[in-house]
């Protein structure tokens, strides 16, 4: 790892002010992506600005309409939250199969979404539930947030402060876990909003990162059941093909994971 200077600001404003002074800085949350990348020397921020201890960035609230998770809340705290379990159990399930216990103690929802790894779990939930990302300067709709591999609508100096998930009528998540890394070989989040809209997002499948799956949305809109997807064919065009699985394999996984997610959603 190259040399760097560590900062621990006490507030969001202080963090943003530090970034303004050090334009080659990076924000640090759980560090479970950024630190490995710095160790590989693929990132060399002059300064790291730690968001993980900022009190106003930690916590979970549920209203009758939305589950709001502040950005520096750890995965572990999300899995332990009674409010989250009651509001959107599929989010708690997704978190419980993310990484391993040590990763879940440190990793944060804000870090996961800001990083936008093409095989990460949270982007699927954000897209399928139509969540809103709040930052220190604005609100960004989930639909506009993810912009391809590791790229998002965020400015370099922008801080995600919370994610607001509308509470759905039904939601479920299923993923084929990569047996070594636990990332999604393909994961599918299905949701039916309270107004009856069906939204389905797949992660770990597309070469461009998380994506909606219109063919599955249409079939589930007509008939919300796993069986309704039996005849659906997913095209392998644009899907990832690598040592872990071909594009055709992932295309089939999208369907199978969607079926399991619908069963989990009930």
């Amino acid at each position: 790892m190259y040399e760097t200077t560590y900062h621990r600001p006490a507030s969001i404003d202080e963090a943003a002010a530090l970034f303004a002074k050090h334009p080659e800085a990076k924000y640090l949350a759980g560090g479970h992506t950024l630190i490995p990348v710095m160790k590989q020397r693929l990132a060399a921020p002059s300064d790291v600005i730690d968001l993980a201890k900022i009190k106003e960035m930690i916590g979970i609230e549920a209203t009758s309409d939305a589950l709001i998770i502040k950005a520096a809340t750890t995965y572990y705290d999300i899995t332990q939250s009674a409010a989250a379990k009651k509001a959107i159990p599929a989010i708690v399930y997704l978190t419980s199969v993310l990484g391993d216990p040590a990763v879940r103690y440190r990793g944060t929802i804000g870090g996961s979404i800001a990083n936008n790894d093409p095989a990460a779990d949270y982007p699927a939930a954000v897209l399928a539930l139509g969540a809103t990302i709040k930052t220190n300067t604005r609100e960004i709709k989930g639909d506009d947030f993810f912009q391809g591999l590791f790229s998002t609508a965020l400015e370099d100096n922008e801080i995600i402060t919370s994610v607001s998930f509308p509470i759905p009528a039904k939601a479920g998540y299923a993923k084929m876990r990569h047996p070594a890394s636990r990332f999604a070989l393909t994961g599918v989040f299905v949701a039916q909003t309270k107004s009856g809209e069906v939204r389905v997002a797949a992660t770990g499948a597309s070469q461009n990162g998380v994506m909606r799956v219109p063919a599955i949305e249409a079939a589930l809109k007509a008939n919300w059941s796993a069986g309704a997807l039996d005849g659906v064919k997913i095209s392998a065009d644009g899907l990832m093909s690598d040592i872990h699985g071909s594009a055709e394999y992932r295309a089939n996984l999208i369907k199978v994971m969607a079926q399991r997610a619908v069963e989990a959603a009930g």
Partner: peptide, 19 residues
């Protein structure tokens, strides 16, 4: 490399001392 930090088992190779 797992150790306990405030009672939680975390990876010490993925933790900066400042954190």
């Amino acid at each position: 490399c797992i150790v306990h930090i405030d009672g939680k088992a975390v990876k010490s190779c993925t933790t900066l001392v400042g954190q």
